[in-house]
């Protein structure tokens, strides 16, 4: 197996691709030169930093540090997701618990099945995929919850007036929001390999793995993303719908 190895000089030469983009921007008066440059420099610095940090952490072989990093990633993701759910009380805590539950459940199955081992170089990248997927799913759930409780206000109030408690009055909205959170993952799972060769699979192939090994990993990833989005969306919706009602069980 010989993987593609990128030397510094080839990286430097490849940077001419950025110049093409800059020239385009300049001659077409897109006024994107400054932004392009900043984004490229930022990306390079960020990635090198992450590369060195990961190299360091992988070398530590310390499962406590690994767990800490995963928790930090979950916190970051929850913070981002809760911004989508602005106005939802305890959005940060709810997001944190939902992503944590989704991540733990999925990691546990993967670990118990022997698919991965609790080592930094396996846990951190896998958690990264799980957590970012859960973050996107929860963000979608929040948006859908908020817009549904607004646009279907009279429906909810009618159900309340019939004597329904807040859960049955919100059930249809909850279902719809959880579906919204899960659909992108299901859709992309459907088209895997046909429309897109996912980044992870591409990465493995580039690194010299056989496509047959790569697809095995990809199948594993698809399974875990499905379970994570399901768990996280479900939890986030069921933990947050109460916040749309007051103590007198009126829709706010």
């Amino acid at each position: 197996m010989t993987g593609a190895n990128i030397s510094d000089s080839s990286l430097l030469m490849a940077s001419s691709l950025v110049v093409i983009s800059l020239l385009f921007s300049y001659f077409q008066k897109l006024r994107l030169e400054k932004e392009t440059l900043i984004s490229v420099i930022r990306a390079v610095i960020q990635l090198f930093a992450v590369g060195y940090i990961l190299q360091f952490i992988f070398g530590l072989h310390n499962s406590f540090v690994t767990s800490l990093i995963v928790l930090l990633m979950i916190f970051n993701a929850s913070y981002n997701a809760s911004k989508r759910g602005k106005g939802i009380q305890n959005g940060l805590l709810i997001s944190f618990l939902s992503i944590l539950a989704g991540t733990c459940a999925t990691l546990l199955v993967l670990l118990l099945s022997g698919a991965i081992r609790y080592e930094a170089n396996q846990i951190i990248p896998i958690s990264g995929m799980i957590i970012s997927n859960a973050m996107v799913a929860i963000g979608l759930c929040y948006r859908q919850l908020k817009s549904n409780f607004k646009s279907r206000k009279v429906e909810v109030e009618t159900k309340l007036s019939l004597g329904a408690d807040i859960l049955p009055a919100s059930m249809d909205i909850l279902r719809d929001s959880i579906r919204t959170g899960m659909l992108p993952t299901i859709d992309s799972t459907k088209t895997l390999g046909i429309v897109s060769l996912p980044g992870m699979m591409t990465g493995l192939i580039l690194a010299g793995e056989s496509p047959l090994t790569a697809i095995r990993f990809q199948i594993l990833v698809s399974f875990m993303l499905l379970s994570t989005t399901a768990i996280s969306s479900f939890m986030a919706c069921f933990l947050s719908y109460r916040k749309f009602f007051n103590k007198r069980k009126q829709l706010i």
Partner: peptide
């Protein structure tokens, strides 16, 4: 309130 609403 759920109890009251069932009567109204």
């Amino acid at each position: 309130p759920v109890k009251i609403r069932k009567k109204i």
